[in-house]
């Protein structure tokens, strides 16, 4: 029974995977920026590792938002009105972060640059935390009434399970970004990145394990009828451990592949555990939003499917090409044209 509703559920999962894997390292680099860049030139080099790609990466989440609106408008409406203050916080963070990347080097004043660097740091940290919190909330359930309206408040979103999810994304993105930075820079940034990875890597692994265990204990993800996430959570943890081993041998390319797969497997676990639900009601299972009661009409889904199946591959091709163009390391000799 693979229908268009399922296809769109999968597509949105794919957009979130793309977002977690790509924007994940962007966030990580932003979080590590003040800690690994001791001089202004070093901080500029750190930012330039993601300079050409961060904006394209961010479009993944904008597209995910648009796709939710188009395919599951009820989900879009309930989620964004329900998580109002959390989303406000996230938007404020994303705004200052985006402006920070473009503005920080355009004035010499140390105060100007320090301010933007701090905003890039917080603008990366806050969403890295909040995306985990948000996905955790989808699964553990929030108060949604029979009209699909969220009836809780901001603090209802911050239970222990959701915080574990948030700390898992925060730490995993940081490690992911550290490995990316190690791949794209030279000394002394590389050495510092390696120390940061070794410090935060175990923390991220612990939080991902903890997230898996609490998902098992505190949600119905593994017990209810639906799609069994099966091995994917094991894969996520396994990849984190493998990444750790590879980091110690300084096989950073493979370590990056492993953290990417770990992030992807985590997203897949959450979406498989959700399926066919998109937002669980903690008040009554009948009030849960699913890919059927939250969906657009079959006509709209069909139109959007054609558009997506044509254009998503094209986007992947040209974004892949940009990574190829900018595959070189940013070294002290690299002309910082920007």
């Amino acid at each position: 029974m693979f229908d268009l509703n399922t296809l769109w559920f999968v597509l949105i999962a794919v957009l979130f995977i793309g977002f977690f894997v790509l924007e994940g390292f962007d966030y990580g680099v932003g979080i590590l920026l003040p800690w690994l860049g001791k001089t202004d030139a070093e901080r500029r080099r750190i930012i330039n590792t993601i300079g050409p790609v961060w904006d394209g990466n961010e479009v993944w989440v904008i597209t995910a938002g648009g796709a939710m609106f188009a395919a599951f408008p009820q989900w879009y409406a309930t989620l964004f009105s329900g998580f109002y203050l959390a989303l406000l916080l996230m938007l404020a963070a994303l705004i200052v972060r985006a402006v920070g990347f473009e503005f920080r080097s355009k004035d010499r004043s140390p105060a100007w640059r320090t301010t933007w660097d701090a905003l890039i740091f917080f603008g990366s940290l806050v969403p890295a935390l909040l995306w985990g919190v948000a996905l955790g909330n989808l699964l553990v359930g929030v108060p949604i009434d029979q009209t699909m309206t969220f009836t809780g408040g901001f603090l209802d979103l911050l239970g222990p399970y959701e915080l574990i999810a948030g700390l898992a994304t925060l730490s995993a993105f940081t490690v992911h970004g550290g490995i990316f930075l190690h791949l794209k820079s030279d000394e002394p940034i590389r050495g510092r990145a390696l120390r940061a990875i070794k410090l935060i890597g175990p923390v991220a692994t612990v939080f991902i394990v903890l997230f898996g265990v609490t998902t098992y204990l505190w949600t119905d993800a593994f017990t209810r009828l639906g799609v069994d996430p099966g091995l994917t959570p094991i894969v996520a943890v396994g990849c984190m451990l493998a990444a750790g081993a590879l980091v110690h041998r300084e096989r950073m390319g493979w370590a990056f592949v492993m953290t990417s797969v770990a992030l992807a497997a985590s997203v897949i676990t959450i979406f498989m555990s959700l399926y066919p639900r998109v937002m669980v009601s903690s008040l009554n299972p009948d009030w849960t939003l699913t890919i059927y009661n939250a969906a657009s009409t079959p006509y709209t889904l069909r139109i959007m499917s054609i558009v997506a199946l044509v254009f998503v591959p094209i986007v992947l091709i040209y974004q892949g090409w940009t990574y190829w163009v900018f595959r070189h390391r940013i070294t002290a000799d690299t002309h910082l044209e920007y």
């Binding site: 904008i62 938002g65 648009g66 395919a71 879009y76 959007m304 558009v307 254009f311 998503v312």
Partner: peptide, 17 residues
């Protein structure tokens, strides 16, 4: 949403990227 979401999503997919 059934109507309005479509051009918004297409805008992101075709133009923003």
């Amino acid at each position: 949403g059934d109507i309005f979401g479509a051009p918004l999503a297409i805008e992101a997919l075709l133009a923003f990227f």
